[in-house]
Computed example of a mutant assay.
Amino acid sequence: MKNKTIILSLFGAVVLLSAMVGPAYQVGDAVSDFTLKNVDGKMISLSDYKSSKGVIVIFDCNTCPYSQAYNDRIVQLNKNYASKGYPVITINANNPEISPGDSFQAMVTQAKEKRYDFPYLVDETQKVARTFGATNTPHVFVLRNEGGNFKVVYIGTIDNNSRDGSAATKKYVEDAVNELLANKEVTTSKTKAIGCGIKWKNS
């Protein structure tokens, strides 16, 4: 009976987690349009980027040590690829009641201090994060614009060294975007996102 109770508890936890995260996009899926508030107060939609070759969507936050370690690399990704048609969009879905350092005002402060030249959007309802199936910060989704439809071509982590970017031997996001720019298929289309779990609301 004890083992049965444990199994049922574990099953319930899995069901709850699935309900919180929702149906996750997979490589090849078309992404629905979304509209979220940027740190400058303006509303930004994925459809605003219909003239781009694609976008690099990164679920991120202020407080996670992994996000902090990757911050300069995220800024550099936008510098490297926005002009080539693959700009960065960052989204913070953390519940500020659990993580006060991820409040909207804290996001505004961070964007100013770090001189973000890309959107830093707040996902207050967490609907966008759930729709994407984002679980960690940072969690990257590279999207390719195919005739106005954005499709997922890469999901996962930025590179293979969360602590030191200069020591990374695999730069998954860079490799994926470089292959896209060369009209090639993405060789590594999925990796495990390394980072802190998104701070979900209870409902």
Rank of each mutant, 00 (worst) to 15 (best):
K2Y: 14
K2S: 12
K2D: 14
K4E: 15
I6P: 00
V14M: 15
L17T: 14
S18C: 13
S18Q: 14
V21Q: 12
V21N: 02
G22S: 07
P23Y: 11
P23A: 14
Q26I: 07
V27C: 06
G28V: 06
V31H: 06
S32C: 09
K37Y: 09
K37W: 05
S45D: 10
Y49L: 08
Y49R: 06
K50V: 12
S52C: 13
K53Q: 13
G54C: 06
D60G: 05
C61A: 10
T63F: 01
Q68L: 09
Q68D: 07
A69V: 04
I74M: 05
V75M: 12
Q76E: 14
N80Y: 05
Y81E: 01
S83Q: 12
S83C: 07
N92D: 12
N95V: 06
E97M: 12
I98Q: 15
P100V: 09
G101E: 09
S103G: 13
Q105I: 14
Q105E: 15
A106F: 03
A111W: 06
K112I: 09
P119E: 03
Y120V: 04
Y120A: 01
V122M: 08
E124A: 14
A129C: 11
A129H: 02
T131D: 12
A134Q: 03
V140Y: 00
V142I: 12
L143C: 10
L143R: 00
R144W: 04
E146R: 13
G148K: 12
F150V: 07
K151L: 11
V152I: 11
T157R: 08
N160G: 09
S162G: 10
D164L: 05
D164S: 11
D164R: 08
G165T: 04
G165Y: 04
G165W: 00
A168E: 03
T169W: 06
K171N: 15
V173D: 00
V173C: 02
D175W: 00
D175Q: 14
D175C: 03
L180A: 06
A182F: 10
K184G: 11
E185G: 15
S189K: 15
I194H: 01
G195H: 03
C196Y: 06
N202W: 13
